[in-house]
Design a protein around this nucleic acid. Sequence first.
DNA 1: GCAAACAGGTGACCGGAATCACCTGTTTAA
DNA 2: TTAAACAGGTGATTCCGGTCACCTGTTTGC
Lengths: 209, 209
Amino acid sequence: MPLTLSELEPVRQRFSGELLQEIAEHGIIMDFDEGTEILKEGQYIKLVPIVLKGLVKVFAPFEEKELLLYYIESNQSCVMTFSAGLNNSPSRIFAITEEDSTLLLLPVEKMNTWIKHYPQINELFYQQYNQRYSELLDTINSLLFNRMDQRLYNYLLEKSKLKGEKVLQLKHKQIAAELGTAREVITRVIKRLEQEGKVKQLSDGIEVY
Amino acid sequence: MPLTLSELEPVRQRFSGELLQEIAEHGIIMDFDEGTEILKEGQYIKLVPIVLKGLVKVFAPFEEKELLLYYIESNQSCVMTFSAGLNNSPSRIFAITEEDSTLLLLPVEKMNTWIKHYPQINELFYQQYNQRYSELLDTINSLLFNRMDQRLYNYLLEKSKLKGEKVLQLKHKQIAAELGTAREVITRVIKRLEQEGKVKQLSDGIEVY
DNA sequence: GCAAACAGGTGACCGGAATCACCTGTTTAA
DNA sequence: TTAAACAGGTGATTCCGGTCACCTGTTTGC
């Protein structure tokens, strides 16, 4: 059965008319619990996701370690999945839901024709490519010139903003993994941030100012 | 006067039919000497380039320093220019010819309609976005985990391969700029590479093995 | 032809971060 | 309930790369 318009509500500013009908017909909507790995590295992609609700984070795995690349917010998609899907190449990244999330999944074999016929969806992906590229440049800048304390603080600020929570439940270990460093480093640096009054470590999480 | 088919020869595997005619009609071909800055940071883009002959290098300027992001080889384009052009936003990067080069320049106001009508050109940019994205991931990986010696060696290897020259005429200062580090660091690291037998510093350049 | 600019080399030093080894307190699972 | 696993804290050490100061030799431009 096709999806209903109300199910597709979040993307109705973006898609309309015939394309919306196509999506209703061929798309699938799925819910995922927080912390679900929705895409593994090396996986081949049959469905391209668009986030309707929630938050998904995307990681690049580098030998041994990994690094958080960006978040996919609602109404956004994942260009790495998109390109891996179109080229039928394995994914270089993996993705995990950061919150309980609802995803619209579009079959990759339809994408090719949709892209040709419907500029709306084409625009989405160009826009996404752009944004992600820009974010990667920021990441590089940060890796090149920012010290750990700045990187950590930015990371906490962004996460707090995206999740709309002042207090983040995070383990030092998890932070270290997302920033591609070691746990002890986080423990130390976060204490410096605390002394500078930028964050506060509570029993149930980290409060960000 | 429109461009001739022979002028457009390098892109004729990629573009054909009506699109090729459009390109012949609205495109411009220009030659640039080695070392010309063909795109400045902050500049607004009216023409999207496709390299017909030669080699162009693209840099990201970060506060004070800069970093070589990637090369545009013949038959490739620059996604940063493309996106800046389409969105009418200033360029975040700057580009310099690494060799004497011939560029096909496409007016940005045509791009939008071409992209909608001609999948061939759409595919080019998707493919380029992909490739550049992938290259950025490699850069990040390298920044995160590789030591200077490895980065420098990769840099020399790639440059040697792209230019088809075993002996590279490069100043330590220039290498430092492209890798976003300091001259003294290059002087030292390159000596280590020399001791390891990976490169050799000659009077007229650096030989890469 | 000479001074200035440039390329490269080098020692001393410093600071950030990674690693190692260990310790304490808390949570979890058998 | 008790051991194991986990979270976090900390000192010691090491290493890499950035910076400073300074030197030599070569190229260049007036």
